[in-house]
Amino acid sequence: MTNYGDEATVRSILTGRGDTWAVVGLSTNTARAAYGVARFLQEHGKRIVPVHPKAETVLGEQGYASLADVPFGVDVVDVFVNSALAGEVADQAVAVGAKAVWFQLGVVDEDAYARTTAAGLEMVMDKCPAIEFPRLG
């Protein structure tokens, strides 16, 4: 597979573009990877926005059932859903005016990558910000 998210794109999203991260698939389940990554992002100065059908408050932040329900702009849409659903989330990210989309480890949809980048958004696929951020130094 091609490297979907080169060093420059990863750096741009983590250090330049993304202050508000909508974390799609984030719930109150502390055992899930989404919870740990969201906490990591908060600890590194990012505002997280939980997006989950239950619309739960997570890590002190109000949750929303969908990206369309978030009443303010988001910079990055961080996707913790399976690959079969990820393309729809990427399309929603484009529709709400996000600047970037980040598909987590194991989340791959090459068609969604093509659509999202063609729409002018930066995109990283099959990587984790909690791994990439420390690696950047």
Rank of each mutant, 00 (worst) to 15 (best):
I13Y: 00
V124F: 06
K99C: 12
V37N: 00
D78C: 15
V76Y: 05
V37T: 05
V74H: 04
T20P: 07
G18K: 02
A34E: 00
Q42V: 01
I131G: 06
E88L: 09
T9D: 02
T30S: 11
A112K: 00
G5K: 00
R47H: 10
L59G: 10
A112V: 01
E56V: 11
T57C: 08
T117N: 03
A98G: 13
C128Q: 10
H44L: 05
A68N: 13
D78P: 08
L41R: 02
V24S: 09
R47A: 12
L105C: 02
L136F: 14
R47E: 15
D109S: 12
E88T: 14
K46Y: 08
G87S: 07
G18A: 15
G60L: 12
P134I: 13
V107I: 13
T15V: 05
A112R: 00
S27M: 10
D6C: 02
P53S: 05
G106C: 05
V96P: 03
D19M: 11
D19E: 15
V94A: 09
F80A: 06
L59K: 14
Q42S: 05
D91T: 11
R135E: 12
W21A: 14
R135N: 11
A100R: 09
P129N: 13
T9F: 03
D91I: 02
L85K: 14
A90E: 13
Q42Y: 02
G16P: 02
L67K: 09
A100W: 14
A31L: 08
G25V: 11
D6G: 07
Y35G: 00
M123A: 15
L121V: 12
G18I: 04
G87W: 07
D111R: 08
D6A: 02
F40I: 09
T2A: 13
R135G: 06
A22N: 05
R32L: 04
A112E: 01
N29S: 13
Y113T: 03
A90N: 10
T28H: 10
Q62H: 11
D75Y: 09
A55R: 04
L59N: 14
T2H: 08
R47K: 15
D19Q: 15
G137F: 13
A65E: 15
F40T: 03
K46C: 02
A86D: 00
G36H: 12
L121K: 05
V81Q: 07
F133E: 10
V49C: 04
T117V: 12
G5T: 03
A118C: 06
K46E: 04
A90F: 07
A95M: 06
D111H: 04
R32P: 01
L67I: 14
Y4G: 00
V124M: 08
D126R: 04
G63F: 03
T20M: 08
E7P: 01
K46I: 05
P53L: 03
A84V: 09
G137R: 14
